[in-house]
Design a protein around this nucleic acid. Structure first.
Lengths: 127, 127
DNA sequence: GCAACTGTACTAGTCGTATAATACAGTCAA
DNA sequence: TTGACTGTATTATACGACTAGTACAGTTGC
């Protein structure tokens, strides 16, 4: 069963997108594996304190991307393979790196300073 | 006069927030300085192809944060000093670093791998 | 079989983002 | 002074995100 203990929603971005990213990043990290069960829509929405329809929207998009399988009455399960995970890495990880590099350059940060900042602030972040 | 040549709006985040960030990052980089004139609401909205009210909202928030001064009939100007810029660095730069570190850790990326990825993708980004 | 779960679908309402159109007052150069 | 710019304010409209409530059908364990 996939847990959402580490899920910390942020203000400003749609919750369903954050759920999507949470699952994708877990798949990239390997903490979420093929066949893993997801909590039901109702349970997860109660757990996160949001509307069931918001969870449903996120799960629907995961299914459209063929990352989960759902059928009425049973819990949804992850459907992952090496190819899909590689695609996720390219999609999520690459985009994250690209956007932070652009932002830092806009602030006049040099590559060396960027590396120093990232390295120094690595410990302080809570996973 | 502050230019918006390097302003590339992204989908998914409100435009007025992106304008805010663009100005703040410019101030942090030092490319935007105290006393610099901003384009008028109407001119900038036409330049960016967006509604004047959207620009007005961004400028209103900049004024609420005391980063610009406005008076009817005259162009708005930046009001920066060392303290404000230091505060912006803490607010924008720190948050950017913190969020990317969290995201990368969620994907199971090690500190060394993160540094390698950032370094490798530094060149490819266009400022 | 039955109860309690599961996924799925639909309508209605609120709120924030953004657009559109308009109006009024202050500044400034010709 | 006059006209073209400036900032500021208002109202109306559209759309997406999110909430709220309800309904129905399939699965599972007892």
């Amino acid at each position: 069963m996939i847990t959402f203990d580490a899920f910390k929603p942020t203000e400003g971005t749609p919750i369903y997108q954050q759920i999507l990213l949470y699952i994708k990043r877990g798949a990239i990290a390997g903490t979420i594996r093929n066949g893993d069960e997801l909590p039901s829509r109702r349970v997860l929405s109660a757990l996160l304190g949001i509307n069931p329809n918001t969870v449903q929207k996120a799960f629907k998009m995961l299914e459209d991307e063929a990352l989960i399988e759902s059928q009425a009455g049973a819990k949804s399960t992850m459907t992952l393979d090496g190819e899909k995970i590689a695609k996720l890495r390219e999609e999520v990880l690459r985009e994250d790196i690209r956007s932070i590099a652009t932002a830092l350059r806009q602030m006049g940060i040099s590559r060396e300073e960027a590396i120093r900042l990232l390295s120094e602030n690595w410990e302080e972040t809570e996973s």
